[in-house]
Amino acid sequence: MKNGAFAHIFTVLFAVFMLAPIGVVVAVSFTAEGFLEFPPSTLSLRWYWAILDNPDFIDAFIVSLKLGFVSALLATVLTVPAGLAIGRGRFRGRDALQALFLSPLTVPTVVLGISFLRFLSLFGMNGTFIGLAVCHAVIIIPFVLRLVLASVTGMDPSIEKASVSLGASPWTVFRRVTLPAITPGVVGGFVLAFITSFDELTVSIFIVNPSTTTLPVRLFSHIAQTTDPLVASVSTVAILFTVVVMLIVDRLYGLDRLLIGEGKR
């Protein structure tokens, strides 16, 4: 079936709805005035230069980058073996294990946030980068697991048997057969985990201190006080960063596949 006129109009309106809030942030960031105006009467890069005078935002951006990288790496390294076990085996407790690793998706993030706060503060770890990274790893493991699982279950199990029959050792099988077969899922999982960590607010806001404040937390605190063109320009930089990552992912893996979490169709 083809789409009719109603479908075309609906699609355009939907696209406007999806893009409007993002577009408007980008638009107002180019104002020359000291307040938010839309559309900007005169265009300037004034508020982009202003970012350089606010090292808070730059520091937060760097923290978020480091945090995203470290927590995504940690999550991926821990999840790949678990994903292989869950994706392949039929063993007692398999469903329970999978449910446990996916559970951070079900628990409200605010509950996770206060629980991490309570836990870390008892050990004096609150506000540390390592504490933040470990908590982020817990939240993003479900995203990695879903993509790794999709790759593992989409993999022909006999290719491993085939390589064993050709004389490969278990480590060789993993390195030369299994890992290449699930690489798309692992890479996709890493990227999705990185972005999720990079954007995370609700957990972070409970467990950061001034030196480990992430970009979303910094933006949130700023916006809660005042909305000025500075947050718009910082947001635009963040959007640009996301768009670049997104286009790379879409080219490599397919955005829909990444987000649906299905390896094979």
Partner: peptide, 16 residues
């Protein structure tokens, strides 16, 4: 267009 915003921080979208 539909899925891309998922990757943009909720804070930024709410600012919009």
């Amino acid at each position: 267009i539909v899925l891309g915003p998922l990757l943009v921080s909720v804070v930024v979208r709410t600012l919009g």
